[in-house]
């Protein structure tokens, strides 16, 4: 994600859509990638991305620059994605109980299968599928975005030790999954 000029942020905060488009272009890839890996299907990822930028647009005036813009947008993206996925997950469980559908498993439907056609994305999708939303958020910020523990704690507004415990559990789950042969030819 590129740095965004203060002037651009101010203009966007005043409702200048062209300035907001500059912000969008510099951060849409990151936000969409996070959304895609959290939600694991394109339709939900698009909805999350839209929600993130609508929230950002409406709250830009309130952004005071206490944290970097990158951390601010990371926070909106992650919280939106986590809440969206938890809500979806709860809806799915409710429906599953009602209809006695089989469990979604790691790769639950055709849309997800299409998304993870590429080998690297497929492996990533399978591994992320064995984590809960909170663990997934921590591992994505650490492994893909390269944030340190303090930055992850800031983005997710959680304690440093919570970051550690979520990362540990996520990594244990990933190793267990890979050892069971969940990710082909991996170990």
């Amino acid at each position: 994600m590129q740095e965004i000029a203060t002037d651009t942020l101010e203009r966007a905060g005043d409702g200048d859509l062209q300035a907001f488009n500059e912000i969008y272009r510099s951060s849409a890839g990151f936000v969409y990638s996070i959304a895609l890996r959290m939600a694991r299907n394109t339709a939900d990822a698009e909805e999350i991305t839209q929600d993130v930028f609508v929230k950002a647009y409406k709250n830009l005036k309130a952004y005071e620059g206490r944290s970097s813009f990158k951390t601010w947008i990371y926070r909106i993206a992650m919280n939106t994605a986590i809440n969206f996925c938890k809500k979806r997950s709860a809806e799915f469980k409710k429906r599953e109980l009602r209809e006695r559908e089989p469990s979604p498993g790691v790769v639950s439907n055709e849309a997800e299968k299409n998304l993870f056609k590429e080998d690297a994305e497929k492996k990533l999708g399978e591994l992320l599928g064995c984590l809960n939303e909170d663990q997934r958020a921590c591992i994505l910020l650490r492994e893909i975005e390269g944030l340190d523990y303090r930055q992850i704690a800031d983005v997710l507004k959680i304690e440093l030790n919570t970051v550690r415990s979520r990362l540990k559990r996520a990594r244990e789950a990933m190793i267990a999954y890979a050892r069971q042969g969940g990710v082909k030819d991996e170990l």
């Binding site: 849409a28 936000v31 990533l124």
Partner: peptide
């Protein structure tokens, strides 16, 4: 852990959203 991490996270790229977003 290092193998899993390298195999899965090492090759992913950033994906741009479609224009209609």
């Amino acid at each position: 852990l290092r193998t899993v991490t390298a195999e899965t996270f090492g090759q992913v790229r950033e994906i741009e959203p479609p224009a209609h977003v």
